[in-house]
């Protein structure tokens, strides 16, 4: 895992926001004191994304279903535009995520967006994933070969 205080790339920030539980994001957003001044350029709106896999895992793409996705685009009074996309139907989560994507483009807000929202969310999702990995690892099969008593 990267340094705890290093600013995240725009894409990494979107990874964190897209996978964040909506209620946790809303709480961190309320507690952050960041300005909620964006106006909606688009959405929040829910639609579908066709999901693709690859034939055989690594071959030609094929469609194997769809997922609900909610997106939003927000513009700050100072002109920065933020975008957000995430699986599911949580509109407030999309609106907040787009606002954060815009706010982190402003040098005076970027450190707070990072420290108060993105890093705690990333830390908690990292812990959840590590816990799941450790639980799965406990079900690893350790094979051993029986010695046949025929000597």
């Amino acid at each position: 895992m990267k340094d705890e205080t290093e600013p995240l790339s725009r894409r990494d920030a979107m990874v964190v926001l897209a996978s964040a539980p909506g209620d946790v994001l809303e709480r961190l957003w309320r507690e952050s004191g960041l300005p909620d001044e964006g106006t909606a350029l688009r959405g929040p709106e829910t639609g579908l994304v066709a999901l693709r896999g690859r034939i055989g895992g690594g071959g030609a793409p094929f469609n194997f279903g769809e997922a609900t996705v909610t997106r939003a685009s927000v513009k700050l009074p100072t002109g920065e535009v933020g975008h957000a996309y995430s699986l599911g139907r949580e509109r407030e989560k999309a609106r907040i995520s787009a606002t954060l994507d815009a706010l982190r483009q402003r040098t005076e807000f970027a450190p707070d967006v990072n420290a108060k929202i993105l890093l705690p969310l990333r830390q908690s999702s990292h812990e959840t994933d590590e816990q799941r990995r450790a639980e799965t690892a406990a079900t690893r099969v350790d094979f051993f070969t029986m010695t046949r008593g025929e000597d």
Binding site: L48, A50, G57, N63
Partner: peptide, 13 residues
């Protein structure tokens, strides 16, 4: 629902 697009192929590896 409207369709926004399609995903990149998921990487199962």
């Amino acid at each position: 629902l409207p369709r926004f697009g399609h995903s990149r192929p998921v990487d199962t590896a």
